[in-house]
Computed example of a mutant assay.
Amino acid sequence: MSKKNNTAGVLAGLLAGAAAGVILGMLYAPEEGKETRKKIKTKANDIKDQAVNKYDEVSEKVKDQYSNISSTFKETANTVAHTVKDGYDKYKDQIVSKTADVVKNVESELNDLKQ
């Protein structure tokens, strides 16, 4: 996840740098103020649209990854639960069987003592 956070940070930095470069370039260009402001507004809208598109793209990837992780977690939890239940059932049956054997042995010993 660290690389993805770094990628998002680098992308944000690049977009901010590009925006600053475009705006500074337009401000120093030899054009009328009205035309320069129009170009700045157009470029700002373009950059905003790019940022929104990138946000939507990254957001969709995060949702997909969350869904995959969630599904994997649920599958793993189910597997663990079934394994624990199977182990419990196996050992429970063994304990019941051994306990029955012990009871039989004790009863047999008691019967032998009574005679």
Rank of each mutant, 00 (worst) to 15 (best):
K54F: 10
R37S: 06
T72H: 11
A44R: 04
Y66S: 07
S59L: 00
A29I: 05
T76Y: 08
V52W: 06
V80H: 03
A51C: 04
P30M: 01
E31K: 06
K41C: 09
A20E: 14
K43V: 05
N45A: 13
G25H: 01
K38M: 07
M26L: 15
E75T: 08
V52R: 11
R37E: 04
E31C: 06
D64A: 14
Q65G: 06
V52T: 08
H82N: 15
A19S: 11
K85S: 05
Q50D: 13
I23R: 11
T72W: 12
K48F: 12
E75C: 04
K48R: 14
K54P: 01
A29E: 11
E75V: 06
N53T: 13
G25W: 01
A77N: 03
T42M: 09
T72I: 08
S59F: 02
G17T: 10
S67N: 15
D64K: 15
I69D: 13
A77H: 04
A20P: 02
K54H: 07
Y66V: 02
G21D: 09
K54W: 02
A44H: 02
E31R: 05
A77D: 10
D49F: 05
V22W: 09
T79G: 12
E75R: 11
H82Y: 13
R37V: 05
S70H: 03
V84G: 04
V62A: 11
K38H: 09
K63W: 03
A81W: 00
V62D: 02
N78T: 01
G21E: 03
A29N: 02
E35Y: 09
V62K: 03
Y55P: 01
V58G: 00
I47V: 12
Y28K: 14
T76N: 14
D49G: 07
N78C: 02
T83H: 10
S71F: 09
S71R: 14
E57W: 04
G21V: 05
L24K: 15
Y28P: 00
Y66I: 09
E35K: 12
A77T: 11
G17I: 06
Q50W: 14
K34H: 05
A20G: 02
E60P: 03
K74E: 10
I69N: 07
A81E: 09
D64V: 15
K41N: 06
T36Y: 00
D56F: 03
K85F: 08
I23S: 10
A51Q: 04
I69A: 15
K63V: 00
P30V: 00
K54N: 06
I40R: 02
G25S: 02
N78A: 02
A29T: 03
N68A: 15
E57Q: 07
K38F: 00
D46H: 11
P30T: 01
T42G: 05
N78Q: 10
K39D: 12
S71L: 12
D46R: 10
I23V: 14
N45R: 14
N53V: 08
E75P: 00
I69C: 08
Q65F: 08
V84C: 00
T36N: 01
I23F: 07
K41R: 10
D56A: 10
S71M: 01
Y28C: 08
A77Y: 05
V22Q: 13
T42Q: 11
A20F: 10
E35W: 08
A81S: 05
V80Q: 03
E57V: 04
E35F: 11
S67I: 07
V58H: 00
K43P: 01
Q50A: 14
G21Y: 05
N78Y: 00
